[in-house]
């Protein structure tokens, strides 16, 4: 058995890709179809482009949409980082990173600043992104209006007519019922003043990072077969009301490992007597913080 750290170190080296597979697994005709879709998605920010999603060698719900986007975009010179809930070493992240290391042979990394493509499940890294990076999101439900209107034909018409009253009513009802807007993740945004878009289930803490982001953001939903995009330097506004402005989550305590006060924290239950601690969800940012402070060993005392 290898430890996770060994596994990540093994993976990072550039390798010869697996024989018998096309580069990045997908066939060229599928890549062309997805590439045409991505270009249209970039031209109409926030609009969901339908595409012919393929069967991937892992089930829907494991990031098949994001994988197909990454496979269509990635090249030999890229450096790939994969995160799952901010962490580089959870099952989903490890298996996707191994998949691309095997089928493309590209270099992989856990450091946000070194990566050129970052595939993410439900987080935006804490480290600011740059102009040469592409952030690929795995999306379970691309349609922000789906819980309010089950019919695809109807939601498409609503988007076409820019008829977003339903969403305003939903936010209003949240305030009436809970006294505040109760959506803590997958908080809908308006892109470039036109389309309402699901940011995928990232915590609303991450929403402000999408606004005027220097990196290109691509979204892939495998089961629902939709692609969408936010070009760099695009206005992304979280929906709210003037008297109930959008706010991000805050924590009373700092990260228990690195002491950071302005990162997104996960609650970790320590035992069955109710002891728990809050730690950074972004494992790379947390490790960097600790290294800067000269802390090496993590004490779970």
């Amino acid at each position: 058995m290898m430890t996770l750290q060994q596994d990540i170190c093994n993976d990072t080296r550039k390798k010869t890709p697996l024989e018998g597979y096309n580069f990045a697994y997908l066939d060229e005709s599928t890549k062309r179809m997805i590439r045409r879709g991505l270009l249209k998605a970039v031209a109409v920010p926030g609009y969901q482009v339908p595409f012919a999603g393929r069967e991937m060698p892992m089930p829907c719900g494991w990031g098949t949409g994001g994988i197909q986007v990454t496979a269509s975009v990635i090249g030999e010179e890229d450096v790939l980082k994969v995160i799952d809930q901010g962490s580089d070493d959870t099952t989903n992240a490890v298996s996707i990173r191994r998949f691309f290391a095997g089928t493309t042979g590209v270099e992989t990394t856990t450091h946000t600043a070194e990566a050129t493509i970052i595939q993410t499940r439900h987080r935006i890294p804490e480290h600011p992104l740059n102009e040469n990076q592409i952030l690929v999101y795995q999306v379970p439900l691309p349609e922000p209006l789906r819980w309010l209107e089950p019919s695809e034909k109807e939601t498409r018409t609503l988007h076409a007519l820019e008829e977003y009253g339903l969403m305003n009513v939903k936010i209003y009802e949240d305030i009436m019922r809970h006294g505040a807007i109760a959506m803590s993740f997958d908080y809908p945004v308006r892109v470039n003043g036109r389309y309402i878009m699901s940011p995928s289930p990232i915590p609303r803490f991450d929403n402000p990072k999408m606004h005027q982001c220097p990196a290109l953001q691509l979204f892939g939903a495998g089961r629902e077969k939709r692609l969408y995009a936010i070009p760099p330097y695009t206005d992304v506004k979280s929906l709210d009301f003037e008297d109930y402005p959008f706010e991000v989550q805050r924590w009373e305590e700092p990260c228990a490992l690195c002491g950071a006060r302005h990162t997104y924290l996960d609650e970790v239950v320590l035992d069955d007597t109710g002891r728990r601690m809050f730690v950074c969800s972004d494992s790379d940012a947390c490790a960097e913080n600790r290294a800067r402070q000269g802390m090496t060993e993590v004490s779970h005392e």
Partner: peptide, 10 residues
């Protein structure tokens, strides 16, 4: 494709 994607997104 990457050049075209870069061109269209910038």
């Amino acid at each position: 494709f990457r050049s075209l994607l870069r061109a269209l997104s910038r």
